[in-house]
Amino acid sequence: MWSEGHSVLVVGVPELDDYVRARTAHYDASFLADDPAFAHAHITLLGPWLSEPSPTDLDTVATILARTEPFEATLATVDTFPNGLIHLRPEPEDPFRALTAALAEAFPQCPPYAGTFPDPVPHLTLDRRAEGITPDSVARDLRHLLPVRTHVDRVDLQWWANHDCHVRESWKLGHRG
């Protein structure tokens, strides 16, 4: 599948990056990043976002993120959306929902998931249901890693395109500088 590319504001979950990177390689290795800062395992806050954000757009994101203090989250239970997407939901999810709401309000031209889901659920995508791939098989694969407790202290602006996945910008939560 060829992608012209899009940007996404995400929270990386490094504890699961090896697993998600392997699944990405299985489906389409052209989306593997050489950028060591790039988090294949992530929770999307807003995407697709602006392809070419202005300095003012970037400052707006920085201001929103400066108002949010770092927090802890746990990902423990493998679940599936009706469309077959196998995922983990963070607990608590309220800080993720609050960030998505603030970013979507600041950038109404960029509704979460292009407006496909009216109430987007914070999640970390693991795989898609297919022959031999079930929530149970994914849970077995991850049994030695779950639950994952992660410290959320930054948000990255990622660019996703074939052979060109990288971090464009990164902001620390609660950072007022």
Rank of each mutant, 00 (worst) to 15 (best):
V152K: 07
T77G: 01
R154H: 15
R21N: 04
R149H: 12
F117C: 10
T24C: 05
A41L: 08
E4M: 06
H6M: 14
P120R: 14
D94H: 10
L85M: 05
A130K: 00
T134D: 05
E4I: 11
Y19T: 01
V78E: 02
R21A: 05
R168D: 14
S30G: 01
P53N: 12
L157T: 08
N83D: 15
T44Y: 13
L46N: 09
K172T: 14
T80W: 04
L32P: 00
F31A: 00
L124R: 05
G115R: 02
T24F: 06
T77I: 08
T24I: 14
R129S: 07
R129D: 10
L88I: 07
P118G: 08
A104L: 13
P48H: 10
P95W: 13
H151M: 13
L32C: 00
A104P: 04
V13L: 02
K172M: 09
R97L: 13
D79F: 04
A25M: 10
T56W: 04
Q158W: 11
T60N: 04
R168M: 15
P111M: 12
H6G: 09
V11A: 04
H123D: 13
L146R: 07
T63M: 03
S3D: 03
S170L: 03
A62C: 05
D127P: 05
H40M: 03
S54D: 08
A41Q: 08
D35A: 08
W49P: 11
P122F: 10
W159L: 07
E69I: 09
P135I: 07
T116P: 00
W160P: 00
L46A: 07
S7M: 09
H175Q: 09
L99T: 06
A76L: 05
K172C: 09
D141W: 05
V20P: 01
A76N: 07
T56Q: 09
A106W: 13
V155K: 00
G115T: 08
D136P: 01
E131R: 07
A66R: 00
A39Y: 12
R143Q: 06
L75Q: 10
L46I: 15
P122V: 10
R168G: 13
G177K: 09
R129V: 15
T100H: 08
D35V: 08
Q109S: 14
H175T: 13
L85V: 08
T74G: 05
H151P: 11
P111E: 13
E4K: 06
R143I: 12
F117Q: 13
R168W: 11
D136K: 03
A62R: 04
F96P: 03
R168S: 13
L173M: 11
D34Y: 07
R23K: 06
T125E: 02
M1V: 00
M1E: 07
G177W: 13
D94R: 12
G84A: 08
W160M: 02
L9V: 11
L50A: 15
P82K: 03
V121Q: 08
H40T: 06
